[in-house]
């Protein structure tokens, strides 16, 4: 019984009590307190329908997407310590990361995690569709989800450029060439030549959507900086805010869906 005595002793210390303001969660009151009193856990309701906690129902794919997003944020910050987004340094910084950081797998976790997040987001959508969870009252949250899905793809896409190797610039070239063909807004798209006043071409390769995306006519250093900022700051912020909205709405729409 010495072990149990030790646990109890730790639980009785002032330090422990200052952190956890309730006893062990083995009775109703404390189980409520442990969820409601913790800023992270209080995303959850204190009690929920049994069907909603079953793995066979949610597949836990939304939760895993969120977890992978957090893991990517942490590993991404670590990578930022080593990486400079310029044509001169970017590639060499990635090499240095490989060669000078012992046992380094942060880049691997970040890259494979990014792929995994795309997969889990798709599967999450698949599950939500199959359980009909987009039906009233959850129509709006489904829409928020679709935007999150698009942003997840864009996060992955912008990150793909950063290693600045052949794979990166040519994948982004293929991708961004599509933007060139946007109707009316890309210089290679239908309708662009209508926007011409006399000799003055309004939509050209110097101002169309692809130019805005790449800050240039091809994937060069300005594009690298632009993608870096989109990837490390702008899109994650928007995703973070939308995830907050998404979770809030899951609660406000009555928790995980169940038969009416």
């Amino acid at each position: 019984m010495a072990g149990k005595g030790l646990v109890q002793k730790v639980r009785d210390t002032q330090v422990w009590k200052s952190i956890f303001r309730h006893g062990p969660p083995d009775n109703a009151r404390n189980r409520a307190a442990v969820v409601a009193g913790n800023v992270f856990l209080h995303l959850h309701p204190i009690k929920l329908k049994k069907s909603g906690v079953q793995l066979g129902y949610t597949w836990c794919m939304g939760g895993l997407t969120f977890f992978i997003f957090l893991a990517l944020t942490v590993t991404g910050v670590l990578l930022m310590f080593y990486y400079r987004p310029t044509a001169e340094y970017a590639y060499n910084d990635i090499i240095a990361l490989k060669e000078h950081v012992p046992l380094g797998i942060m880049r691997e976790i970040h890259r494979w995690g990014a792929h995994a997040m795309v997969i889990t987001v798709w599967l999450h959508m698949f599950r939500v569709f199959m359980t009909g969870s987009y039906k009233p009252p959850r129509e709006f949250n489904w829409g928020v989800g679709v935007i999150l899905l698009v942003l997840t793809l864009l996060l992955s896409f912008t990150g793909y450029l950063l290693p600045w190797d052949q794979l990166a610039i040519w994948a982004i070239t293929v991708g961004s060439n599509m933007a060139k063909a946007t109707p009316f807004m890309g210089h290679g798209g239908p309708g662009a030549m209508l926007a011409q006043i006399g000799d003055f071409v309004m939509v050209s390769d110097k101002n169309d959507v692809r130019f805005q995306l790449l800050a240039g006519r091809f994937v060069g250093e300005p594009a690298l900086l632009r993608f870096y900022i989109l990837h490390c700051v702008f899109i994650p912020l928007v995703v973070g805010v939308l995830i907050a909205v998404h979770f809030w709405r899951v609660r406000k729409d009555g928790g995980i869906s169940a038969p009416l």
């Binding site: 189980r31 969820v35 856990l41 959850h44 204190i46 069907s51 906690v53 895993l64 977890f67 995994a116």
Partner: peptide
Amino acid sequence: NREKVWCWPNLVYTELFAIIACTIFL
């Protein structure tokens, strides 16, 4: 299945398990 259950331990432990499995996998 309509019955309400406590979030702790029913849900949080599932989540913990999923997180650990996912971490190991990655």
